[in-house]
Design a protein around this nucleic acid. Structure first.
Lengths: 167, 167
DNA sequence: CCGAAATTGCAACATTATAACAATTCTTTT
DNA sequence: AAAAGAATTGTTATAATGTTGCAATTTCGG
């Protein structure tokens, strides 16, 4: 099989402004195609979520928005997140109660997240083979899988390196 | 490879009293081995969690305990759950904020849950191969996976059957 | 029995998320 | 452009989930 591309979140010196710009451009394009409205609030929330590769809680997003003017109320942010989730522009990481930008919006995929327990960075994988193996096993037991969410906890390359140095 | 045994949660007419008894016995045994104390509170919480194969939230557990006398405070239940989690006797399903009895306490394993979106039943799989495939991929990107949690959403055999009938 | 350690009780509080309804904005039709 | 209808946002209040800190009690080892 072809080696999958390394998630950009795991490349420590990537040009992150590019991540943000690309994500916003892709979102605009996707919404245009689908006739969905990427309103200022929604666009702003998406932009905030993309500020880093560390997932942000809804109230952390609220705090960022408060810094730039009037503080919106929780439902505003939750509704924007609902919209972004529904259109596959962000993902929710349940074990963190937090949200992260989707690295491959538009392409249907199961969620596989590599969560660094030290720095909090989350990288998204989109390898269909992994979830489909589970789907086959479940099918064998009569269970029809429709969606799969996988969270892997461990150390990202940077933190694993530092960990090794300390020893 | 040998076909894995079908999770008991997916067998609609299993003797569930046996599930509860076995789980409590296994827990007692495990705590004895490890010098951990399965106190009345902890044992009671474990018993409540095992009342069905549907995960229960902490406050639902509180409600059950309240029915049988004095209502304990949240920290009582959360501490009991922490203990049970630490000893691998229950699992937390993050996307449901709920807890379920571990079907293979004592054996170290990653968590793979089949969650029925209709009836809420959760069956636990413990196939090491699935998580290790993810671990290999992650390793290829320099990420060292330490634990994996997988949630699969879909229809259990019973509900898939009824769904088919309706058509 | 006595002191140390673990467990439980308790009160208050922090965080995450939602409900219900009003006000506004956008779109479509006339 | 005006009006009707739909979608979005604002606002208030509250629900659901989870934690902190400290006191009281129980358990365990000497």
């Amino acid at each position: 099989m072809p080696a999958a591309r390394k998630p950009v979140a795991l490349r420590s010196n990537h040009d992150h402004h590019r991540c943000i710009e690309d994500a916003l451009a892709a979102a605009a394009e996707l919404c245009r195609e689908q006739g969905a409205r990427l309103t200022p609030v929604r666009r702003r929330v998406l932009e905030i979520v993309w500020q880093s590769h560390k997932p942000l809680g809804a109230y952390a997003i609220l705090d960022v928005m408060a810094a730039g003017g009037r503080r919106p109320m929780p439902p505003t942010v939750y509704r924007a997140l609902d919209f972004l989730l529904a259109h596959g522009l962000v993902h929710r990481i349940p074990s963190l109660n937090a949200f992260i930008g989707c690295s491959e919006p538009g392409r249907r995929h199961d969620g596989q997240y590599l969560i660094c327990r030290t720095c909090g960075t989350v990288a998204e994988l989109t390898e269909d083979g992994l979830a489909s193996a589970l789907g086959r096993t479940a099918r064998g037991h009569g269970f029809a899988v429709e969606a799969v969410l996988t969270e892997a906890f461990g150390l990202c390359p940077d933190c694993a390196g530092r960990q090794g140095d300390a020893a």
